[in-house]
Design a protein around this nucleic acid. Structure first.
Length: 566
DNA sequence: ACTACACGCGCC
DNA sequence: AAAGGGCGCGTGTAGT
């Protein structure tokens, strides 16, 4: 029991992941769905099923806990026995499925009720987290429509690059006596060719004593084939990830207007990251290059995709949290990195110049705990130049420096850090500075409150923008959710886009850390764009949760016929 | 055959 | 001694 309580406590920063599938089932079945059930399911799932705090990866099932702590009788056995394959509910009769969902929700709620005081620091934070998780779930249901012609163009470009490079590599290696079919991704082939056949001297070796063929080694060889191999691996990674793997995620759903389209459902874990950021998988849409983003088009023939970015979100938050007035106003009122560059070099610089890039590298780098050595490499300067720049930076922005020292002290004194919304990241340091990996923990301690609060800013934006758009349409959240669940079900079952009864208003269709992606209906593109920007700046939910957060935010809009396009 | 890990690399 | 925060995922290698 004590162990469980400790695990719950360790995970208190999460407090809000979800089991939305159960709730969708209840909604689709038209069953009454009491908010506290939702609430209970979400709390418990966060605590039991998602990633636990760093040091405590315990995994207890909901049923185990309910039976152990509340003397519940096991209820999952009957439905589990009817599953054709583990975890697949398809073969379980609907009535049994519904009853299981109902009991999941009920016991989750009872557990939360019983355990509440032991692990929840702030009820309002948990409620906020739930609202974000639910809005994110609706983003998953919304998914995205893919322009299949654009997909083919993107795939064709990448495939062509890979084929060209492969041809060049084969020409080179066969000319120099490599007899097998050379596979550029096979480390052994690379070793044989470069070190045995060509007789190049391996600059270093791997842990197991083999000649190194990693990227930095290949680059240091300054050999044309080594360069080709580096280039090949870059394009081949793009091909395997964004052509082959992505293709199987897209389900074709017939035409939309004149376009061949497909359908992508997102799978977003509302608290997948230790910081409170969301994560995305199958596919991971958070790491798409611009060329891949272009495949996303509106679900309405004349609609637009809007990308709404918070400008310099993490620096703004750093300035606010660190109470560094000069740093803060550089990013809220001034010209951001241009202003920072002025304080570093006493010189007005243009965006894109060497000094501008240096300022940006220093701001981002120090926030991530970058040392002088790495900074020097990033800037292409000597270590002592980089070290001097760091000192100048800390001298110009004393609040930032004090903030970093403060997180180090907090880490040493409490073994955790806390964000301004009250999220906790436990970072035990039993041996103080001597704890193995302390430098890393220190970097985490500095970064967590910033990245975590940024995730709450964007989370609030998702919730608030959704609410604002629905208010404009006189839609309730429940109607909207039911509608989305129905559409998603039909699209998943392969019905054409034109037959699933799309809603006729703009909606949030993705979130990437500091930006929202909206599918903008053609009825009111300007009105909706303005509404989204205003709402992202107003951020009513987060500002109510954290009244001291009065800092203005800037939003950059890019709207076009595709994601990231014009 | 399977899992675990390290690596590289896409994004913020 | 030096160390870049947070992810997902494809690949190859090492170990079982």
């Amino acid at each position: 029991m004590q162990e469980i309580i400790e695990a719950l406590h360790s995970a208190s920063w999460l407090a809000g992941h979800s089991l939305p599938g159960d709730i969708d089932q209840l909604l689709l079945a038209g069953l009454p769905c009491r908010p506290e059930w939702v609430y209970g399911v979400k709390c418990l799932d966060s605590l039991l099923l998602s990633r636990m705090a760093d040091e405590n990866r315990l995994s207890y099932g909901l049923e185990d806990l309910a039976c152990t702590l509340l003397s519940a009788s096991p209820w999952k056995g009957a439905s589990t026995a009817l599953m054709a394959t583990p975890g697949n509910m398809a073969s379980v009769p609907p009535e049994i499925r519904k009853e299981r969902c109902r009991l999941d929700a009920w016991w989750a709620y009872k557990l939360v009720e019983a355990l509440w005081p032991t692990f929840v620091a702030s009820r309002s934070l948990v409620e906020f987290t739930h609202r974000v998780a639910w809005a994110i779930h609706r983003v998953c249901l919304a998914g995205a429509v893919v322009d299949l012609d654009e997909f083919d163009r993107m795939a064709g470009n990448i495939t062509e690059q890979v084929a060209d490079l492969l041809w060049e590599i084969h020409r080179e290696v066969t000319a120099h006596g490599f007899t097998e079919t050379f596979a550029p991704t096979n480390d052994h082939h690379i070793r044989v060719y470069l070190y045995d056949i060509l007789g190049l001297v391996p600059p270093k070796h791997t842990k197991t004593g083999l000649a190194a063929v990693d990227k930095s080694t290949l680059q240091s060889l300054s050999h044309p084939v080594a360069d080709l191999l580096v280039e090949y691996s870059r394009w081949d990674k793009l091909r395997s990830t964004y052509v082959d793997s992505l293709r199987v995620c897209v389900s074709p759903t017939g035409d939309s207007g004149s376009a061949r389209v497909g359908w992508l459902r997102w799978h977003i874990n509302p608290l997948g990251a230790r910081t409170g950021r969301r994560t995305s998988e199958n596919p991971n849409s958070q790491n798409w290059p611009e060329s891949v983003r272009r495949i996303v088009r509106s679900r309405w023939p004349a609609g637009h995709i809007g990308d709404f970015d918070f400008k310099a979100l993490e620096p703004v938050i750093l300035g606010w949290v660190a109470e560094d007035e000069r740093f803060l106003s550089a990013f809220t009122k001034g010209k951001g990195y241009v202003d920072v560059a002025w304080w570093l070099f006493k010189k007005r610089v243009e965006e894109g110049t060497k000094e501008y890039k240096a300022a940006k590298a220093i701001v981002l780098g120090t926030n991530y705990g970058m040392g002088a050595g790495t900074l020097a490499r990033a800037l292409g300067t000597d270590v002592d130049v980089a070290a001097r720049l760091r000192r100048t930076y800390f001298g110009a922005f004393p609040g930032v420096h004090a903030y970093m020292a403060g997180r180090r002290a907090e880490l040493l004194n409490t073994g955790q850090v806390v964000s301004r919304t009250g999220r906790v990241r436990r970072l035990p340091v039993p041996d103080g500075e001597e704890t193995p990996g302390f430098k890393h923990l220190e970097n985490v301690a500095v970064n967590f409150p910033i990245q975590s609060f940024a995730a709450d800013v964007t989370g609030s934006a998702v919730v608030d923008v959704e609410a604002a758009l629905l208010r404009e349409q006189n839609q309730t959240l429940t109607e909207h959710h039911q509608h989305l669940a129905r559409i998603e079900k039909n699209l998943t079952n392969g019905h054409p886009l034109g037959t699933v009864g799309l809603m006729e208003y703009s909606l949030v269709e993705n979130e990437v850390h500091d930006s929202l992606v909206l599918d903008i209906h053609s009825a009111h593109p300007e009105r909706d764009t303005e509404l989204v920007v205003e709402t992202m700046q107003a951020l009513p939910t987060l500002r109510r949760l954290v009244p001291s957060f009065t800092i203005p935010l800037r939003v950059k809009v890019q709207r076009g016929t595709s994601w990231g396009g014009q």
